[in-house]
């Protein structure tokens, strides 16, 4: 068999893993409680992912060895794949139906003929079972087990020095932001300048929250980085001027609202929304 064919089979194989079951609406249900056993803190290691890697290695191992004509290892990987697939099917009772043991066994039998075409064809049936579960569950699992909860992060308001939940803090930040814009709109520049001081220190306090989830400082270049500094400097300049320039003021407000608030919401808040919905059940 030509290596181009093998390659295209590989593509098909990978395609099945990624292919959503069918184009239809997506429903994000909270993953079953029994899955928690395989993630920290209940488990010391992320056991579910480790299991996925095992299956994926044996699945891929069959094809790599078929290509290299190392048939002894083709058989080994085929047997191991069935074994791990069965084991996985017993891990989360609620998900039993995603698995098709017969498809796994049929694939192993086809692989053992050492005929690439037969193996490729039989892989489709098995690959589909992987793909269906991924399409329906993977995002939910990411949200539940890889996105920490914002609500559990406590923030100390630098103004009042009171400690509060992240969502309440956001409301505070949002209202002091409005203090800046509303006063400016009314021509009350002194009040706007004062509100800016409060708002800036509250906004900068957000910088302290990044390290609750991130372990590199690089991320602070975003949302709370240079763009925000520039915008704050621009705002202060206008408010300290004899005659503030509204054009420049609103441009900097726009910059702050977009890079400082909106971009962080687009990346982080989506997951927070989903978790919150589940928690309200």
């Amino acid at each position: 068999m030509s290596s181009a064919r093998i390659f295209s089979l590989f593509i098909i194989f990978i395609f099945f893993l990624a292919l959503p079951a069918q184009a239809k609406d997506m429903i994000l249900k909270e993953p079953p409680q029994s899955l928690s056993k395989y993630y920290p803190p209940e488990s010391k290691e992320p056991k579910w992912i480790q299991q996925m890697h095992k299956m994926s290695t044996h699945f891929g191992g069959v094809f790599v060895n078929l290509k290299e004509k190392d048939f002894e290892n083709v058989d080994k990987h085929a047997d191991k794949l069935v074994e791990e697939y069965k084991k996985t099917s017993e891990m989360v009772p609620e998900w039993e139906e995603y698995f098709d043991i017969k498809a796994a066994e049929a694939f192993a039998a086809a692989a053992k003929t050492h005929d690439m075409a037969k193996a490729g064809k039989a892989s489709g049936g098995l690959g589909k079972t992987c793909g269906k579960c991924h399409a329906e569950q993977e995002v939910a699992v990411w949200t539940r087990f890889h996105w920490p909860s914002f609500r559990k992060i406590k923030v100390t308001d630098p103004i009042s020095e009171k400690e509060m939940g992240f969502d309440d803090y956001m409301s505070q930040v949002s209202s002091s932001f409005k203090g800046v814009t509303v006063n400016f709109g009314e021509g009350q520049y002194d009040r706007s300048a004062k509100a800016l001081k409060t708002f800036k220190s509250q906004f900068m306090e957000l910088k302290s929250t990044c390290s609750k989830c991130h372990t590199t400082d690089d991320v602070k270049r975003f949302y709370v980085g240079e763009d925000a500094d520039t915008a704050f400097a621009g705002l202060a300049k206008e408010l300290n001027a004899e005659k503030p320039n509204p054009g420049k003021f609103w441009k900097n407000i726009g910059l702050l609202g977009k890079t400082g608030c909106k971009h962080c919401h687009l990346t982080h808040r989506t997951y927070s929304f989903i978790r919150e919905t589940w928690e309200q059940k």
């Binding site: 920290p40 803190p41 920490p148 559990k152 989830c213 372990t215």
Partner: peptide, 13 residues
């Protein structure tokens, strides 16, 4: 323990 959400954040171990 509080900051790591009951030690569930893998990056923190």
């Amino acid at each position: 323990i509080e900051a790591s959400e009951n030690r569930s954040k893998e990056k923190c171990l």
